[in-house]
Simulated assay, not measured.
Amino acid sequence: MKPLRILVAMILFAGASLTARAMYLDAKANLAGVLIHRAWAKTAKTGAPQAPWPWADTHPVARLRIPRIGYDEIVLEGATPRTLAFGPARLFSGANLGEPGNVELAGHRTSWFRPLEALDAGDQIEVQWFDTRRHELRERTYTVNDIRIVSPEEVTSLAPRSDNALTLITCYPFGPSPRSPQRFLVLASPAGPSRSAETSRLANRAQL
């Protein structure tokens, strides 16, 4: 009986360890989310880049919203593997927020960009950022023109552009599948010029 008791104790200990680790990772992710939102709130007020924690090598640069599917996340700068663990991020190969060109945002298919599988052509995507030239928070609404599933080598959609555009990128298929041999692209164009976020907020309140 003694070997059996030892085996049972070892199984219970392993289970408790895995549960504790899962709880720790969940708490860590929740805390990171709170700190990232706080950093974005400061950036939205002052325009100065705010690291979410002292040793972070990234900072919030935008807020990404898709009203129809209830999506609302903070975008971080630099889509490195470390940064993508904490949220969607801007690819350095794309245009900067508020500048002419194709703004490229990436996110994991199992978390931050998993909701993109519910997108349809014609959906509205809202991007908010701080314009350092105008010293104000601005936003632009994009309309989804096309949704494509392509191979990793097919990068024509990510070529530099002179006109304004938005591309959302994630791996495919969605979910916990161990393999993701394809890429899911959401291609969108501006529904109009950028506008002051404060003006937009007041206009929305007036319509209520």
Rank of each mutant, 00 (worst) to 15 (best):
V75A: 00
D72N: 09
G101P: 15
K42P: 00
I125L: 09
D57T: 14
L64N: 00
V127I: 11
A106W: 04
N102Y: 14
G122P: 09
L116Q: 03
K42R: 13
P54A: 14
D120Q: 10
A106Y: 02
G78F: 09
R63Q: 11
I125T: 07
I125V: 08
L91Y: 13
A62F: 11
L76C: 10
A44E: 03
T58F: 10
Q128L: 12
A56D: 01
H108K: 06
L64D: 00
N96V: 08
L64Y: 03
K45H: 04
S111N: 07
T83R: 10
G94R: 10
N102R: 15
T80Y: 02
R109S: 09
Q124F: 07
I66W: 00
R114V: 06
L116E: 02
P52Y: 07
I74W: 04
S93K: 01
D131M: 07
T43E: 15
G47Q: 02
E77Y: 04
G98T: 14
A56G: 01
L97V: 12
E104C: 05
A89D: 12
T110F: 05
T80H: 03
A85G: 06
H108R: 05
R109W: 07
A89P: 12
G98V: 12
L119S: 09
F130W: 08
P49L: 11
L105V: 14
R63F: 04
D72Q: 04
G98C: 14
R82T: 06
Q50Y: 01
F86P: 03
E99H: 12
G70A: 03
F113W: 06
P67W: 05
I69F: 05
D131Y: 08
E73N: 04
E117N: 06
R65N: 09
G87R: 03
A56Q: 02
P115N: 01
